[in-house]
């Protein structure tokens, strides 16, 4: 379980996270939804210890983030993060060199799934294919948790479909997934838990299926109430 307790974060005088608490469980897909703002990305960065927080606690299965845990938690940001001069193949070799949890067999499977050409140089790939390379680097690790930042932003509809497929596929298996998005429509049926965020605060945290069962509301219905009300 990834747990955030009363997390505060300021950029200069601007409060970005103002007492955030929520959990993302294993074997569940948790979706951090926010209409705008930097908060969502900051939360993922903070979980990965890529940016300091001013107050609060973040733990992963009860432990603070440390070097070895990067073998157990993968983060897929929405910017390209491998060297542009690398080929896909070289990028995979790089990962294999450092991560004990790199799964070469699965990596090959993902390359096939996304129809990537491993001899392509990363800088020459389209935006969609760069996003796929990013996903490849995260999904091929045998991790317990996968964090994805805006996996659907700025990519074509076919790539989007492929990425959506990932969530219900063996590639995700029983891992805990935490994704951020502002476009929930496409994945409403895929997620377990929704955390609604705005202005650095959590407005509501609920299970999507329970919400449909007990209140007969879709995720978008709830969002409409929260953000318009």
């Amino acid at each position: 379980m990834i747990e955030l307790k009363n997390v505060h974060k300021r950029f200069g005088r601007k409060k970005v996270l103002d007492g955030i608490s929520f959990t993302a469980n294993k074997s569940e897909i948790t979706c951090l939804v926010g209409v705008n703002g930097v908060g969502k990305t900051t939360i993922l960065n903070a979980i990965m210890n890529l940016t300091p927080i001013n107050k609060g606690d973040i733990t992963i299965d009860g432990k603070k983030m440390h070097a070895n845990l990067y073998n157990k938690v993968a983060f897929i940001p929405d910017v390209a993060i491998m060297l542009p001069s690398m080929t896909v193949h070289e990028a995979m070799d790089f990962m294999k060199d450092y991560y004990s949890t790199w799964n070469s067999k699965r990596a090959k499977e993902i390359v096939r799934f996304f129809r990537l050409n491993i001899s392509d140089t990363i800088s020459e790939l389209s935006k969609g294919n760069q996003a796929k390379v990013n996903l490849l680097m995260g999904l091929a690790l045998d991790v317990d948790y996968i964090l994805m930042d805006e996996p659907f932003s700025g990519i074509d509809i076919f790539t989007r479909e492929q990425i959506t497929d990932v969530f219900s596929s063996r590639l995700v298996e029983d891992r805990g997934v935490l994704i951020t998005t502002h476009e929930i429509m496409d994945i409403e049926h895929l997620i377990d838990k929704v955390v609604l965020l705005d202005n650095g605060k959590i407005y509501k945290e609920f299970n999507a299926e329970e919400m449909r069962e007990t209140e007969g509301k879709s995720v978008v219905d709830v969002m409409r109430e929260v953000y318009n009300g």
């Binding site: 990965m48 845990l69 990067y70 983060f75 940001p77 491998m82 450092y98 004990s100 800088s123 680097m137």
Partner: peptide, 17 residues
């Protein structure tokens, strides 16, 4: 500030920083 933000990858390597 490179074309891609390789800092993400480096800081997330499972080795002491």
């Amino acid at each position: 500030f490179g074309k891609n933000t390789f800092a993400y990858r480096l800081l997330m390597l499972p080795v002491s920083r």
